[in-house]
Design a protein around this nucleic acid. Structure first.
Length: 871
RNA sequence: GCCCGGAUGAUGAAACUGGUAGACAUACCGGACUUAAAAUCCGGAGCCGCAAGGCAUACGGGUUCGACUCCCGUUCCGGGCACCA
C-alpha cells in the first residue's frame, strides 16, 4: 500500500474498476427492487457550476447508498439542450447553436465523469436530438386533437426597435436588453396547454405526496390558487345593444359597496371608449408600455381613467361608473373587477387618489370606520357583518355570499363559481433553438397537425441568427409546405415550443431511451412504477418545472399508450437542495446598466476578520462595487468554476466539501476555505488506514467481552453506524453523517489498540468507516477497502450492519437542572425507574450543593435525559 | 406587490419529538517536532467576570418546570411570480 494519499493516482484507478465491473449500469430486471434516483438534468451552458456539483453529488450519495442496501439503482443523465443561451452565444460568437450545444455537452460530460458519479451513461440523450423531440411533436398532435392544446391571443414583450419578442429576463427596467428601447405589451396568437383542466387533480395530488417538502406543496397549492367566489354580470347598453360585463369576486358580501368597476386596458369596452376619446386612447397606450411580468405589473403605480361609460349594478340597477385600470389584467379571470373601496385595500387607495366614493357595507364589533386611514379589519371577512346593504343587513360573510349568489342566479346575472389562479400554459416561443411546433397553417383547412409519417419536423441546423425576429420565419425552405389535408400550398408554423416541455417528460424516456418507433415502451412500467423514487434539484424549480412535470404525467396517462402505465405522480420523493450563493460584483454604466464581473477577474480585499470589504478589477486596477449574496448564475456572472477545485484536490475533496459544508436543503455560501479541511481529512483517513494495514491486516472478529475502553469505542462505532444510516436514509442530511464519522475517528485515535482484540476492533472500525464514507467519497474508499480486505469491492459491498449488543450500556449520565438551569450531572443505572432517578438526583453532589435548604416544589423527570428540580 | 423560506461564536454549521446551546469543521492563538518551512501532533477559546456567577440562538412580546425549537408582532436577507433554466 502506498504511504501517501494521491488523488491523481487513485481516482482514475477507482473509476477504471467501476467501468470494468459495469458498476453504474442499471439492469432492466423487473424482479428486483428498483431505486430510480434522478437529478434534474443540466442545461449545457458550457461548464459545470457549483450548483451542479452539489446537486449531482447529493444524487450520487443516495444512489450509491441505495445500491449498498441491495437495490437495483438507475441514475441517468441527459441534457436539457434547447434554450436561449445557445442563440445568444450564436449572436456573440458566430457559432451555430447546435455546434455550440454539442461542444458544451462534450465538455460537461467529461467533468461529470471526472467526479465519479455512478451514472448509467448508456441512457444519455439530449433533448435537441430529433429522436427525442419527435415524440414531443407526436404528443402535441394527440393533445391538439383532444383539444388539450388550443390557440388564443397571448401577451408578449415587444421590442419595437429590434422588432422582436423578448423573454422577461431580457427586459431590464422596462427596456430591451440590447436595444434599450421601452418595451411594449403586444398580443399575438399562441398555442396553449389546458393545464387548468387538471387544476383540481394537480391540487388534490399534493395531498398524496408525503415525500415532498411541505414548503413546495404549499407553494404549488397557492399557485393553483383555488377559490370559491361569485361570478357576476353588470348589464350595460352600448350603441343601443344590451350586453353583460362579467367579473369574478371572492367578496360578494361587499357587493352593495361597489362604487365603480374597472377593466383592463385591453378589454373591448376600454377599446370602445378609446375610439372617440383621445385621452383614453393615450392612457391605454401608456398602459401598453413596459413588460408583462407579474412582478413589474404588481409594483407599478396604480393608475386609472374613467371611460365615461356606466354599467348597471346587478342588484340595485344603479349606474356604476366604468374605469380603465392599469392594475387590471386581461389574462386573469374576466379582465374586469368590481371595486369596493371600503373593503379592499387597493380599491381604497385608488378611490382616495381619484376622489371616488367609499361606501361602508360591513362592520365588525366595536370598530370605528374612518375614511381617513385604511384599517385591516375593513377586509377581515371572519368578523364581517353586513350593514347599509338593504335585505342583506345583519348577515355574516358566508350567509351574505350565499344569499347574494342565489339572488344573482334568479336574475340570471351570476352565481357561485370555483375559480383557479392557475392559467393555461402558453407554449409558443418566437425563437429558433427549440422544438418546432408540428402544425401547418392552411388557408382552407385551418391549423392542421403534421401527420405521424411526416414527423419529426426537423429543426434546420444551418441558420442565420440576427437577434431580430425568428430565424425560421425568414426561411422559406422551412416554412413553405403543402397542406396534408387538401394538398394546397400552406405555411408551416415557425414558432417553437417552450423548453419547459422537454423537461416535463424526460424522466420517462430514461427508461427506454433507445426506443425507435414509439414514445415509450413497457420498461417504463418497471422503472417508473410509483414514480421516480427520488428526485433531486434546486428549490428554484419548486413551482413551474415541478408542476409542469406533474401535469405531463397525467396528460400522457390520459392520452394512453397501449400496455404502459404512467404514474399519476411522477416523483415520489423530492429533495429540493438549496442554492449555491456567492457575492456578485458590478459596475454601473452612465445609463444605469449594471455590468457584472466574475470573481476570477477581481482582486478581493477582506478585513481582519476575513469579511469581504472591497474588490478591484485586475484588468484596470479600479474598484468595482460589491453586491449582495446571489444565486450563482450567468446573469450575475458570479459562478465559480469547479474545474480548478477538481484538478487541484480531486473529485473526492470536491464531493466531501460540498456535502460537509451545509445540509442539502440550505443555501450554501461559497468560500474557498473549508476545501483545504476536506482534503486534510482524506489525507488523515488514508494515514490512519495505512498505519493499520502496514502492521498487517487481521480478521474483524471482535471478542464478546472487551475491556472498558474497547467496549466504549465499539459502542461508539455502532452508534455511528446507526446514525450515519439514518442520516443517509431518513434524514438525508449528509453533513452530520460526515461529522459523526469524524467523531468516531477522533475516538479511534485516542484509544490504545495494540492488543490482539484491539487490532480486531481497529479492523472492524476501519472497514466500517470506509464503507460508511463510500457514498460520499467513493474513490478513496474503493481503494482503501481493498487494502483492508484484499480482493473486496466497496462498490458491491453492503452497508455495515449494527450489532445491537454493542450498543448496550449499564449506567448513563443525566443532567441536573434547578429551575430549568443546568447545575450538574449524575450517574444512574440505564434501566432506572422514575422514582430511583428522582432519588439519585436529590442525592447527587450537584443537587446538595445547589439546593442548600431551599424547599423543593416540584421535580420533573425526563427519562434518559434530565431531572429538573423546581424550588 | 403577492406566495414560500431563512437568520445560532470570527466563519460553515450541530442540537432529529420542547429537555446540557455551539458537536464536527474552518480561521485564529499557544506549544511540540524541524537548521528552517510545509506537513503532522498536543492544547486553548461564545461574551462579561479573579471567582461565584451572570448574559447569550436577528429584534419585541407570550405559552411552559424548561423555548434555537411552539404562538403573536417587527426587521433584514434569499427564492419564485407563468418567455432564464
Amino acid at each position: 500500500m502506498q504511504e501517501k494519499y494521491s488523488h491523481a493516482d487513485i481516482e482514475p484507478r477507482a473509476q477504471a474498476i467501476w467501468r470494468q465491473n459495469a458498476a453504474d449500469y442499471a439492469i432492466d430486471a423487473p424482479d428486483r427492487p428498483k431505486y430510480y434516483c434522478l437529478s434534474m438534468f443540466p442545461y449545457p451552458s458550457g461548464k459545470l457550476h457549483m450548483g451542479h456539483v452539489r446537486n449531482y453529488t447529493i444524487g450520487d450519495v443516495l444512489a450509491r447508498f441505495n445500491r449498498m442496501l441491495g437495490k437495483n439503482v438507475l441514475q441517468p443523465m441527459g441534457w436539457d439542450a434547447f434554450g436561449m443561451p445557445a442563440e445568444n452565444a450564436a449572436l456573440a460568437n458566430q457559432v451555430a447553436p447546435a455546434a455550440w450545444t454539442y461542444q458544451n455537452i462534450g465538455y460537461m460530460k467529461k467533468q461529470l465523469q471526472s467526479l465519479g458519479f455512478s451514472i448509467d451513461w448508456t441512457r444519455e440523450f439530449a433533448t435537441c436530438a430529433p429522436e427525442y423531440y419527435r415524440w414531443e411533436q407526436w404528443l402535441f398532435t394527440r393533445l391538439f386533437a383532444k383539444g388539450l392544446i388550443y390557440k388564443k391571443l397571448g401577451t408578449v414583450n415587444w421590442d419595437p426597435v429590434d422588432e422582436t419578442v423578448l423573454a422577461n429576463e431580457q427586459v431590464i427596467d422596462g427596456r430591451g436588453w440590447r436595444s434599450g428601447a421601452v418595451v411594449e405589451k403586444r398580443e399575438i396568437p399562441m398555442y396553449y396547454m389546458k393545464i387548468t383542466a387538471y387544476a383540481e387533480e394537480l391540487l388534490q395530488g399534493l395531498e398524496e405526496l408525503p415525500g415532498w417538502p411541505e414548503q413546495v406543496r404549499l407553494m404549488q397549492k397557492n399557485w393553483i390558487g383555488k377559490s370559491v367566489g361569485v361570478r357576476l354580470a353588470f348589464p350595460y347598453e352600448l350603441d343601443g345593444r344590451k350586453d353583460l360585463l362579467w367579473a369574478f369576486t371572492t367578496r360578494a358580501d361587499t357587493l352593495m359597496g361597489v362604487t365603480f368597476v374597472a377593466v383592463a386596458a385591453e378589454h373591448p369596452l376600454a377599446l370602445h371608449a378609446a375610439k372617440n376619446n383621445p385621452a383614453i386612447a393615450a392612457f391605454i397606450e401608456e398602459c401598453r408600455q413596459g413588460g408583462f411580468a407579474e412582478a413589474d405589473l404588481a409594483t407599478v403605480e396604480k393608475k386609472g381613467m374613467p371611460t365615461g361609460l356606466c354599467v348597471q349594478h346587478p342588484i340595485t340597477n344603479e349606474p356604476v361608473p366604468l374605469w380603465v385600470g392599469n392594475y387590471v389584467l386581461m389574462g386573469y379571470g374576466e379582465g374586469a373587477v368590481m371595486a369596493v373601496p371600503a373593503h379592499d385595500e387597493r380599491d381604497f387607495a385608488f378611490a382616495k387618489k381619484y376622489g371616488l366614493p367609499i361606501r361602508q357595507v360591513i362592520t365588525a364589533a366595536n370598530e370605528t370606520f374612518s375614511l381617513d386611514e385604511w384599517q385591516d379589519w375593513y377586509a377581515d371577512k371572519s368578523r364581517a357583518v353586513c350593514i347599509n346593504s338593504g335585505k342583506y343587513d345583519g348577515l355574516n360573510y358566508e350567509a351574505a355570499v350565499e344569499e347574494i349568489a342565489a339572488d344573482l342566479q334568479k336574475l340570471s346575472l351570476g352565481g357561485k363559481k370555483t375559480q383557479f389562479r392557475l392559467r393555461d400554459w402558453g407554449i409558443s416561443r418566437q425563437r429558433y433553438w427549440g422544438c418546432p411546433i408540428p402544425i401547418i397553417h392552411c388557408a382552407q383547412c385551418g391549423d392542421v397537425p403534421v401527420p405521424d409519417e411526416q414527423l419529426p419536423v426537423l429543426l434546420p441546423e444551418q441558420v442565420e441568427i440576427t437577434g431580430a425576429g425568428s430565424p425560421l420565419a425568414r426561411m422559406p425552405e422551412f416554412y413553405e409546405t403543402i397542406c396534408p389535408k387538401c394538398g394546397q400550398s400552406a405555411r408551416r408554423e415557425t414558432d417553437t415550443l417552450d423548453t419547459f416541455v422537454e423537461s416535463s417528460w424526460y424522466f420517462l424516456r430514461y427508461a427506454c431511451p433507445d426506443k425507435q418507433d414509439a414514445m415509450l415502451d413497457e420498461r417504463v412500467n418497471y422503472w417508473c412504477r410509483d414514480g421516480v423514487d427520488q428526485y433531486i434539484g434546486g428549490i428554484e424549480h419548486a413551482i413551474l418545472h415541478l408542476l409542469y412535470a406533474r401535469f405531463f404525467s397525467k396528460l400522457i396517462r390520459d392520452v394512453g399508450l397501449p400496455g404502459i402505465k404512467i404514474p399519476d405522480e411522477p416523483f415520489r420523493n423530492l429533495l429540493t437542495q438549496g442554492m449555491v450563493v456567492a457575492p456578485a460584483f458590478f459596475r454601473k454604466t452612465p445609463d444605469g446598466k449594471k455590468i457584472w464581473f466574475n470573481p476570477a477577474e477581481l482582486t478581493l480585499a477582506t478585513d481582519e476578520r476575513g469579511r469581504l470589504i472591497a474588490a478591484t478589477l485586475k484588468a484596470d486596477g479600479q474598484p468595482v462595487e460589491v453586491g449582495g449574496m446571489e444565486k450563482m448564475s450567468k446573469s450575475h456572472n458570479n459562478g465559480v468554476d469547479p474545474q480548478a477545485l477538481i484538478e487541484q484536490y480531486g473529485a473526492d475533496t470536491a464531493r466531501l466539501f460540498m456535502m460537509f459544508a451545509a445540509p442539502p436543503l440550505q443555501s450554501l455560501e461559497w468560500s474557498d476555505t473549508g476545501v483545504e479541511g476536506a482534503y486534510r481529512f482524506l489525507r488523515r483517513l488514508w494515514r490512519i488506514v495505512y498505519a493499520h494495514v502496514s502492521q498487517g491486516i487481521v480478521a474483524a472478529n471482535v471478542a464478546a467481552d472487551l475491556p472498558a475502553p474497547l467496549k466504549d469505542l465499539r459502542r461508539k462505532l455502532h452508534q455511528t453506524i446507526t446514525k450515519v444510516n439514518d442520516d443517509y436514509d431518513r434524514r438525508q442530511q449528509f453533513n452530520t453523517a460526515v461529522a459523526a464519522v469524524m467523531e468516531l475517528l477522533n475516538a479511534y485515535e485516542k484509544t490504545v489498540l495494540d492488543t490482539a482484540e484491539g487490532r480486531a476492533l481497529a479492523q472492524e472500525t476501519l472497514e466500517s468507516v470506509t464503507l460508511m464514507l463510500f457514498p460520499i467519497v467513493p474513490h478513496i474508499t474503493q481503494i482503501l477497502y481493498a487494502e483492508l480486505k484484499p480482493g473486496a469491492d466497496a462498490a458491491s459491498a453492503s452497508f455495515p450492519r449494527v450489532d445491537e449488543a454493542a450498543l448496550a450500556q449499564e449506567s448513563i449520565e443525566l443532567v441536573l437542572q434547578i429551575n430549568g438551569k443546568l447545575r450538574g450531572n449524575f450517574q444512574v443505572a440505564a434501566d432506572a425507574e422514575r422514582e430511583a432517578i428522582k432519588a439519585a438526583a436529590l442525592a447527587s453532589e450537584a443537587a446538595r450543593k445547589a439546593l442548600g435548604d431551599k424547599a423543593v416544589k416540584k421535580i420533573v423527570v425526563v427519562p434518559k435525559r434530565l431531572v429538573n428540580i423546581v424550588v
